[in-house]
């Protein structure tokens, strides 16, 4: 009985969504605002990556909400997981293999460098603050896996996170007062397109986002690994 009800529900959902989607043509431009971003994005923000100019230029207020959601999720994870197991109940974890430990020592700085490269070049190449932050968090995940018991300093990660968020908010408010009439409007010179120091405040914002997302994700990994060691 239950399985029949499930199949009927799935069929209704699939057919309903399918009928709705069939009417949408594939492979043609649909949104006018997308064309507007493509045409005037480089003039408005100076970033050669149009997706970046949408994320940190036109829709930067959304991005502020996004990093807030990530922060709240990391905080909620810490709150849910905190106080579960008493101290002293820690299980003994066998040390990681020699290959993992040596590889971690070699790869950790390279991963940090690669993450920083991705978020610094967010306005020129595919990538940006979120992707670079994820790469940086993966470097810390490697450390957690290879050296059980080794932890990221809470003070440092919280300082980095707060600095990132503060830079984002303060630069946005400065843009609101100095640069124009909307949040995070670009008040710095755009410079020459396709050079590293171009696109006004976008690289600064992306560095701030990268640091913040990196420390947020590291906090999530920290909370999860706390359960295992």
């Amino acid at each position: 009985m239950r399985s029949i009800a499930i199949i009927i529900l799935l069929a209704i959902v699939a057919v309903g969504i399918g009928v709705a989607l069939m009417a949408i043509p594939f492979g043609v431009a649909k949104t006018q605002v997308g064309d507007h971003y493509t045409e005037s994005g480089i003039g408005d923000t100076g970033a050669s990556n149009i997706v970046t100019s949408v994320v940190v230029g036109y829709r930067a207020f959304d991005t502020l909400g996004e990093i807030t959601i990530l922060f709240v999720a990391a905080m909620g994870l810490g709150a849910v997981l905190a106080g579960g197991r008493k101290l002293g109940q820690r299980r003994d974890v066998e040390p990681a293999s020699l290959i993992l430990r040596t590889g971690c020592r070699f790869l950790f700085p390279l991963l940090l460098l690669f993450g920083a490269y991705i978020f610094i070049h967010g306005h020129l190449t595919p990538g940006g603050g979120f992707q670079g932050g994820a790469v940086i968090a993966s470097a810390f995940l490697l450390v957690y896996l290879s050296c059980p018991g080794r932890r990221v300093s809470k003070v440092w990660s919280q300082t980095t996170e707060s600095l990132g968020a503060l830079t984002f908010v303060v630069l946005g408010l400065v843009g609101l007062t100095v640069g124009g009439h909307y949040y995070l409007s670009s008040f710095m010179p755009h410079g020459v397109v396709n050079e590293l120091f171009s696109a006004g405040i976008i690289p600064v914002i992306y560095v701030a986002i990268g640091l913040k997302v990196g420390s947020d994700l590291t906090g999530i990994i920290d909370g999860m690994m706390e359960e295992t060691i």
């Binding site: 431009a29 649909k30 949104t31 605002v33 997308g34 971003y37 493509t38 994005g41 149009i50 997706v51 100019s53 949408v54 994320v55 829709r59 959304d62 991005t63 996004e66 940006g128 979120f130």
Partner: peptide, 11 residues
């Protein structure tokens, strides 16, 4: 391609 949907998916 449309940059708006890509930004939405990133979010």
């Amino acid at each position: 391609v449309d940059p708006l949907t890509q930004a939405l998916v990133l979010t």
